[in-house]
Amino acid sequence: METPLILLVLANFAFVALHFLMSHPLRVPMVSLLGEMGFQIVYSAVIIATLAGVYFAFIQSPEADLSGTGQVGWAIASVITIPAMVLFTGSLIGNPAMASPGAEKNARAAPKGVFTITRHPMMWSFALWALAHIVLHWSWRTTITATAVGVLALVGSRLQDRKKRELMGEAWMQWEANTSFWPKLRGFAKAGALPWSAGLILFVFLTWLHMPIGGIPAGIWRWF
């Protein structure tokens, strides 16, 4: 493996590992030492620094060194990305996993919208985004980074369940009992007009943005 790709693997590993460590086993001692605000500052700084490391290692790695899956792969990736955008936009409203004053109240409410699909719609949106890029089989740099994002999303959501049970107690356990970790496809019919509309708009915009930023047409822009 070439040196830039080795650095990319290390950068992605640091990004994922430090995210897990600071979000879970190190969070309590760091908050005790630094206070909640100090912890947030250090946490944000470390995540931004490691994400920057991923970015610089990514752009220095070969752009396309795999055979790719052709137009079929692009079509599959596009289909996978649409529900990812629906899950992401829907996750921004009434999400008990987010740190907000109404989190416990949301956890005690009956699941609706994208939460009828999974209790971790944002995490699954990242996981599906990662899967879409892995399916393309475009380059090692893309596959390495997408795999890291997928691990962060799925392992992170499991760890989040454990942390939320400790922080919210019975309210989160009730939320877990009323929702599913694994996505239920039939739930997309109940996701609601707003997540679908916003998700499709975001899909069109981000796939359009793929060309000026990445130099590669994606989504519907691949064929139009």
Rank of each mutant, 00 (worst) to 15 (best):
E36V: 13
T142K: 11
H210M: 13
K163D: 04
H24R: 02
T50Q: 05
G150K: 01
Q160L: 06
V135T: 09
F39V: 02
S125T: 08
L131E: 05
Y55S: 05
T142V: 14
V114A: 03
M98H: 14
F13N: 10
I134T: 06
G169P: 12
G169C: 13
F20R: 09
P212C: 11
M168T: 08
S91I: 02
G94C: 00
M37A: 14
A198W: 01
T143G: 13
T207C: 13
L128D: 05
A153D: 03
P4H: 06
S23W: 00
M1R: 13
G156K: 00
P217G: 05
G53W: 09
T69K: 00
Y55D: 04
V28K: 08
N12T: 07
L26C: 00
L209E: 10
I220H: 04
S67D: 08
F203V: 09
M30S: 00
K105E: 04
A109I: 07
F15M: 08
F56W: 07
S180L: 03
E36W: 09
M22N: 01
V28E: 09
A171V: 12
L34W: 06
G35M: 05
L159H: 06
W140C: 03
D65C: 14
I216R: 15
S78L: 07
I220Q: 03
G94P: 03
S67W: 07
M122I: 02
A17Y: 03
T50L: 08
T147D: 02
A177E: 01
A97S: 15
G214W: 07
R141G: 08
L200E: 05
T69P: 02
M211F: 12
G150H: 00
I220V: 00
L128G: 08
A64V: 09
Q60P: 08
F20Y: 09
P121L: 03
L136R: 11
I41L: 12
L202W: 10
G38H: 02
A191W: 11
R108A: 15
A75T: 05
